[in-house]
Design a protein around this nucleic acid. Structure first.
Lengths: 181, 181
DNA sequence: TGGACCATGTAAAAGGTTACATGATTGA
DNA sequence: TCAATCATGTAACCTTTTACATGGTCCA
């Protein structure tokens, strides 16, 4: 991606109020994981760099007896976030091992290829079930967009499952013809 | 992914006959790029390792005066490919900067958010146009699966564009209500 | 008391891209 | 002759994951 891509996950996560590294990680795991992941190994070092650059500032906010540092966007941090959002360029990268297997499925006997399609569908169904369990309160400080993106995920996976079902039928018919013919 | 993930792109690419590193790269760029990319920096070193492990073997096949080394699957290489294809586990990783921007779009004024959706749609339209230009001969040594996966890509992008159009309408209506109200 | 969770961080390894280097051939 | 393409490869860099380390708190 154009630039140290974890930067914008962090700046974006802070758009409606301060958050700690831990809270950013929770947000990512809950809400953006299916289209954008981030690990502690990225988040904490990047928070330090963003602070050094004056894009965010630290607030000591212990929770009970635990130390906790929340970060808040500075004016220039918000500026950077908004400039990025206005820029129409947006990278898109997919690594889908299921599609890769499907692409090479002619190396299998038809029965195994059909099983591959069914496994592909099961995996997508499992993701769909997870997405359906996510609850994002509409409004509540943020606008409608997190909910809109969640719907995208759900509707996309519903579409994929329909696509798999069509393919399954087609392969079942082909197999049946081979047996009959 | 589970293991040196470029391994299976290579083994899969060789399933219907020998190919050189250059030809594998061409195949990837033409046909799997939208769901699985690979660079020369991955392909050539991996070819050497796979050869050392006895999973592929080298054939000297100069083209004109140019040296060219094609690789062929060995029996154990084909075994490894088939075992991988039969394994239902399949990683799925997406990094979609457009969705990330959409997720944070409540940091923009409504007009800019609408523009973001339009830009998102334009980018997907551009990908769709590229996919539509890809021609994969059905049959021809390989089975129907490469074509099936291409259809997936095309139909998916058509679905995304319809989704964007619905969202655009919704945001346009909201904006109109705000002006009217 | 012990397990789940809150909270912050680092180090090593793995995975991947980009840029560069080299040189031949084909065809306009 | 010049550009495009064929063909192979490496080195440096960047990103990301994984595993580890540390320690506090809450609650059953």
């Amino acid at each position: 991606m154009s630039e140290g891509s974890v930067v914008y996950v962090i700046l974006g996560a802070l758009r409606n109020g301060p958050k700690s590294g831990y809270e950013i990680k929770q947000l990512v795991d809950k809400a953006t994981r299916f289209f954008w992941a981030a690990s502690y190994g990225q988040i904490y070092p990047e928070l330090r760099r963003l602070k050094e650059q004056g894009l965010i500032e630290a607030l000591d906010e212990p929770s009970g007896g635990r130390r906790r540092v929340r970060f808040r966007l500075t004016r220039s941090g918000r500026g950077k976030l908004v400039r990025w959002l206005r820029d129409p360029a947006a990278g898109y990268e997919l690594r889908d091992e299921g599609l890769l297997k499907l692409f090479f499925a002619d190396a299998l006997v038809p029965g195994d290829a059909l099983e591959l399609v069914r496994a592909f569908k099961r995996e997508r169904k499992a993701i769909l079930d997870k997405l359906r369990k996510i609850e994002i309160e509409p409004g509540k400080g943020q606008g409608a967009f997190p909910l809109i993106v969640l719907s995208y995920g759900i509707e996309f996976h519903e579409w994929v499952i329909r696509w798999c079902t069509r393919l399954e039928r087609r392969l079942e018919n082909t197999a049946a013809q081979e047996v009959a013919g």
